[in-house]
């Protein structure tokens, strides 16, 4: 019968690998986003004379800096493999606690700390339900989206709180939200940027955050590597609520009060920004920088819609179509890369 002997070939040498680049500073996605942002910025400055004015940019950067704080927290919890739908309500809860305490003549700094403690408690409660009772992030945080908002309504009976008078006598506290460093740079931007830079370094370099990446990438493997995944998940829940709380403190300052609907839809903005920025919904991948670039894209699109006076009832449609487009573009590129390599 047919006993055939075909060609011989040398096997690839095992264990021998090319020494490639040291370590990537920017992911493909982040570079892409930067280019897209650049194109939009150039396009807008050429087509709209009002865009490049300081007055306009300050508005954009101002709102961007606020939501950016919640985006950082969302990034962390998404990397852990979880999700937090409650950020908007928790932010508003933080505002409410802080404002009510200030109105009751409690020291404003103490009020802020107590508000943050309240948010920590909410995060802790959610985290315990997720890790001890094994409920899903989605269900627990969805419930707390309603619960935290419900507490706000109960505490305020639905009426907005004004702090215009109270903050007038608290110049040092007011500085957080309304101050300007050197007379131009809003304090909110500085707070946001410092949080963002510190968080990004933390995400990239700290061993604690590496534990979060492991947990998000494969929870079971993380547990089998001796990582206490419950503690990791609990910590990310608290971190996310805490960042939402910090945003609340800045917000209450900037607007000198609490509109009880504040933060509605924040979870959508935060999740969309993170996803546009390359944070994986399945966990294990992502960066603060990417998520913030994602948010920048969302903010610029919003600004463009305003500048070109897009009909208000069309704005959501247009905005989320653009979000979808950004995600699609990236997915297509990734698929092409996979076909090329795999």
């Amino acid at each position: 019968m047919d006993t055939v002997k075909l060609t011989e070939t040398g096997a690839a040498k095992a264990g021998e690998v090319k020494q490639k680049k040291k370590w990537k500073v920017l992911e493909m996605r982040e570079l892409n986003l930067m280019l897209i942002l650049l194109v939009i910025i150039i396009g807008l400055s050429l087509t709209n004379e009002y865009f490049a004015t300081w007055a306009n940019l300050r508005v954009v950067i101002g709102s961007f800096s606020l939501d950016g704080i919640a985006v950082i927290g969302m990034t962390v919890i998404l990397i852990s493999g979880g999700i937090d739908l409650s950020v908007g309500s928790v932010m508003c809860l933080s505002m409410t606690i802080c404002a009510l305490l200030i109105r009751a003549s409690v020291n404003p700094w103490l009020s802020a700390v107590l508000a943050l403690l309240g948010c920590t408690a909410v995060g802790l409660a959610m985290g315990l339900l997720i890790t001890k009772i094994h409920l899903s992030h989605f269900i627990v945080t969805l419930c707390f989206l309603g619960i935290a908002r419900g507490i706000v309504y109960a505490l305020t009976t639905g009426t907005p709180i004004s702090l215009v008078g109270a903050l007038k006598d608290l110049p040092s506290f007011r500085f957080i939200g309304q101050g300007q460093v050197g007379g131009i740079i809003p304090m909110t931007v500085i707070i946001f940027l410092s949080l963002a830079v510190v968080s990004e370094i933390f995400v990239r370099k700290s061993s604690l955050m590496r534990l979060v990446f492991y947990t998000g990438s494969n929870e079971k493997a993380a547990a089998f590597s001796g990582i206490n995944v419950d503690r990791v998940k609990l910590a990310t829940c608290i971190a996310c609520s805490l960042f939402a709380g910090i945003e609340g403190i800045v917000y209450v300052n900037k607007f000198s009060g609490v509109p009880v609907s504040a933060g509605t839809g924040l979870e959508m903005t935060a999740i969309a920004s993170a996803v546009i920025g390359g944070v994986s919904m399945n966990g294990g991948r992502g960066s603060v920088l990417g998520a913030i670039l994602g948010l920048a894209l969302m903010a610029l699109v919003q600004n463009a819609l305003t500048l070109f006076a897009a009909p208000p009832f069309w704005q959501d449609l247009i905005r989320y179509l653009i979000v979808l487009g950004a995600v699609l573009l990236d997915a297509l590129q990734k698929n092409r890369a996979i076909r090329r390599m795999a």
């Binding site: 700290s206 061993s207 494969n218 079971k220 493997a221 547990a223 089998f224 294990g284």
Partner: peptide, 26 residues
């Protein structure tokens, strides 16, 4: 339950002994 499939080789190896590549938490 073994590997972090979505992560690269370099990130997988120290997952049990992170202290090998860490100083002061960095």
């Amino acid at each position: 339950s073994g590997l972090f499939l979505g992560m690269n080789i370099a990130n997988n190896i120290p997952s049990i002994h992170l202290d090998l590549i860490t100083s002061n938490g960095v």
